[in-house]
Simulated scan of single mutants.
Amino acid sequence: MLDRSLRAVLARPLEVTAAALDRPGITPDRLTVLGLALGVASAVTAGFQLWWVALVLWLVSRIADGLDGTLARRRRRLAESQGRDSAPSHAGGFLDITADFVVYGATVVGVAFGATAQFGAPWWPFLLVLLVYYVNGTAFLAFSSIAERTGRTIDDGRSLSFLGRIAEGTETIAVHALWLILPFWAWQIALVWALFVAVSAVQRIVVGYRSLR
């Protein structure tokens, strides 16, 4: 729901940062892997109840995740201006979405471990979040694949065709951060979040089906 607005706000700062990072040894794929490693580290530290460390790692991992695509687009524009091949990296897009899914799932598990051990939180709200993540991810990945084959892609600068709904990347980052700030309320937040993601999944299924008919 907020992805488009936030991307507009962050576009300039990300461009400036990507320009500063644009060095031969730094590639979009390496930034993706860095974001993956930091995200998994955030999940592990959350499992050990190091909540503020986990929060910092989480936020930095998401910054790296935002910078990989920005750097890739910057290099494509430069290649085009020099008359060189500027085709987008499908491998990079694949790596990026895979890393996102690993990090999101790992964070849910890490928070569940930490909140259960420290505050006696029940497991089932976190399992519910993982379930609706699975359904939601299946819906938009299936849509993206079929849309590509049928020529009905949604081009917003990203590698895949995203059906924007009420629960998108921005909301996910915010909720996962909120878990780490308020771990004693983690399972209650998970329960509400699962409802939002479930509604988003239903929206994606309905809209995707209608778009592809």
Rank of each mutant, 00 (worst) to 15 (best):
V199T: 11
G69Y: 05
V111K: 12
G92T: 01
L34V: 00
R74F: 05
T153I: 09
P24L: 07
G83C: 03
P28S: 10
V111F: 13
A11Y: 10
Q49L: 04
S161Q: 07
L178H: 09
G137N: 15
L212E: 06
L160S: 14
G120C: 14
L50R: 12
A18H: 07
L59A: 11
V135Y: 13
G110L: 13
I146V: 15
R4N: 14
A139R: 05
R23P: 05
A115G: 14
L71S: 03
I189P: 04
A18Q: 02
T17H: 06
L131H: 07
F196S: 10
A99T: 01
F94Q: 15
R152M: 09
W187M: 12
A37D: 02
A186Q: 15
F126Q: 08
V202D: 01
F140R: 11
D155R: 04
F126S: 05
R149E: 11
W187E: 15
R73G: 08
A41E: 04
F94C: 09
E80T: 12
P125S: 15
G105Y: 01
A117D: 14
V44P: 00
R23I: 01
V44M: 02
Q49K: 07
A54T: 01
R73N: 07
G110M: 12
V53L: 15
L130F: 03
F94K: 13
V202L: 14
R7W: 10
I189Y: 13
Q82G: 08
A190H: 12
G83P: 08
A167R: 06
T170K: 03
L191N: 05
S42G: 10
G92F: 08
G110R: 12
Y134I: 09
V33D: 09
V197M: 14
W124F: 13
Y134Q: 12
V44E: 03
F143P: 00
F101G: 14
L21W: 04
L127E: 09
P13G: 07
R149G: 05
R76D: 07
I146Y: 08
S200Y: 09
F94N: 13
A20S: 13
T27Q: 11
L71P: 03
R152I: 04
A37Q: 03
T70W: 10
L130T: 02
F162T: 08
L36G: 05
L57D: 07
S161P: 02
Q188V: 13
A37G: 04
G105M: 01
F196G: 07
V202E: 01
A174F: 03
T107F: 10
L78H: 10
T107K: 12
G114N: 01
D22T: 00
D22I: 00
P28D: 09
E171V: 01
L212D: 09
W124G: 01
G137C: 10
E80W: 06
E148D: 10
V197W: 05
G151L: 02
F113W: 12
V206R: 15
V192W: 12
A18N: 08
I154D: 00
T98Q: 03
F140H: 12
L130Y: 04
E80H: 11
